[in-house]
Design a protein around this nucleic acid. Structure first.
Lengths: 338, 338
DNA sequence: TTGTACGCGTTATCAA
DNA sequence: TTGATAACGCGTACAA
């Protein structure tokens, strides 16, 4: 473990000079700077985070979290992960503020971003898929704010990192699971919130791609319900009445409860197999009743924890994430291993 | 965020006194000590780890890791988790030493433990299930060493924490998965390493317990292969010849490859469904070939990382684990979501 | 362009 | 029984 002090002694300069050379703060002779950087490299110098943390303590950097989490129980665990991470890092003087909202109105999210833009050092956002948001994110990155997208990514931005699941793979996995459970023949209904949402689109693409390997799979219907349980209930009820041949329902996003309530109205022997995503309380309840056979889990707690962790590592230690994607695996859960 | 300095000012004493009072180093007046402790509590004082790390840098505590990992690829990921955690913590001056061995000879592990007993501050062990080991662990705990069992627990000890999966639940999950994939009828062979190993026993118990819910499930054979692939191959071959009615094989531990090679010799339409545990390279290969339908994953990387994390938290911050068990979930993997 | 000095929170040592 | 002081590694304001 080499320290700046040691490097200073070796190079015959003061600690201040080493600091300026290594951190590119200018005001240092080009040759000596070069020499310092070289010896630092040779000796494998790495700054000690503990020292950094102590010194950076008075800066009190602010991490702002912007999420459309209200009324969406999936985000309860994401937030728990964020809070526990924040708790672990509070001694470093990092401050965290939450901006939660309900629904996916781009203007509303944009307004929040504009409000915080000049005030925060890092942004963790569950972005709404809209050009105005992308533009705003880019301008914030430009101005030196560290940006992490969480749970959903947004294209066309220079955000530093995405933390979340691989939606396309989630669709693949859902279809593969269906094949494993049901065999080669199925009349399938796919239910999702909205094709306007990038994640839902990607899951559907993955699902369809995997379907190509199973000639006996037929997609009887694809339904959008705008994340509304009541609407999902009505639509599913009509669907099952019109298409009694359906023997599999894959809910690729939210609205799980409404769909399940519709399925429960059928006599047990006529109920289709139901697959879902996530493990919100109502989903767990439906697994307990045997209505949902299996669900795909995308580690919400770890998403929240990792997102805050990336921001923290940058703000306190100046470390950029190794990869610009932190992908958490899609896991399959039966009731037994929830 | 209260600091010792602030407490010192409030109580009208020096930082040194506050240090002695709060850390029970003696040599401090009983009344002032009490006063200091009270105000610290009132103000919610918590020591700043960054300061601690800096100050404790020269102590260089040693964490010793004892594992029967050689020749067992499952532990590759466990070790990777340990190494990355160690890397993250090296600035705190923690030193890590590995003692790996091959096989499960209690005397050999005991000798290692006796060698390190007087020299280390923490022990992370994948314990062999033997009374002599239990006794030695207890005596080490007694002498102030922080002990974490990893991947396998051992009964009758006062180890501080266990990090690993729930084996009983793994058995439950394996059987539930079989039911989901195969329906209510199955002639099953269960294959495991050794009933002398606690984890294997527990998985079998869980499996049998879950079987009670499915009257059509019949356990045709239970086979031990002592974690030897060649032996597993031979035994499986004989088994399949004698019991052509077997349509499901659940490998509850290692020997997966040998079993699969035997299954591959059958014509495709006569091959039983195979379930396994873990995702070692040979298992992944067999999933690619479609021989193994699904496998149960117990987060080896996170086991390693968490175990080192617990030891670190104790040695550097003096924090005991909140719970004496850190259970990582059993996850179900198809080839698609590996 | 370079060096000095202080502060961050904790622990350890030595002097009073 | 106490207090003062130095040290740990880094950042920074200020002096030279």
């Amino acid at each position: 473990m080499v320290t700046m002090k040691e490097i200073a002694e070796i190079c015959g300069v003061s600690r201040g000079t080493v600091d300026r050379a290594l951190n590119g703060r200018g005001r240092v002779n080009a040759e000596t700077a070069e020499k310092i950087r070289r010896t630092a490299k040779e000796l494998g110098y790495e700054p000690n985070p503990a020292g950094k943390a102590l010194a950076a303590r008075k800066k009190r950097p602010v991490i702002s979290i912007v999420m459309s989490s209200e009324g969406n129980p999936f985000f309860d665990d994401v937030k728990k992960g964020m809070e526990e991470a924040a708790d672990q890092y509070k001694i470093y003087g990092v401050q965290i503020e939450y901006h939660t909202m309900k629904g996916y109105d781009p203007q509303k999210q944009l307004a929040t971003l504009q409000e915080i833009a000049g005030r925060v050092q890092a942004l963790i956002i569950n972005p709404i898929d809209d050009p105005a948001i992308a533009t705003q994110i880019n301008s914030m990155v430009e101005s030196g704010i560290f940006v992490v997208t969480v749970n959903n990514d947004i294209e066309g931005t220079r955000r530093h990192c995405y933390v979340g699941s691989d939606y396309y793979n989630g669709g693949l996995t859902s279809c593969a699971l269906l094949e494993a459970l049901l065999g080669q023949q199925a009349e399938i209904a796919v239910i999702l919130g909205s094709l306007k949402l990038r994640g839902h689109r990607l899951r559907l693409e993955g699902f369809k791609e995997r379907m190509k390997k199973v000639p006996g799979f037929h997609l009887a219907a694809t339904i959008e319900h705008n994340d509304d349980d009541i609407y999902a209930y009505e639509v599913t009820k009509n669907l099952l009445a019109e298409h009694p041949e359906i023997n599999a329902i894959c809910v690729l996003a939210a609205g799980v409860y409404g769909t399940c309530r519709a399925v429960m109205q059928l006599p047990e022997e006529r109920r289709p197999l139901v697959l879902s995503f996530d493990t919100v309380p109502t989903t767990v309840e439906m697994m307990q009743f045997g209505i949902i056979k299996a669900t795909i889990y995308q580690h919400p707690y770890r998403q929240g924890f990792s997102a805050v962790n990336k921001a923290f590592e940058y703000l306190v230690h100046g470390r950029l994430p190794e990869k610009d994607m932190c992908i958490l695996k899609n896991e399959i859960k039966l009731f037994e291993n929830l």
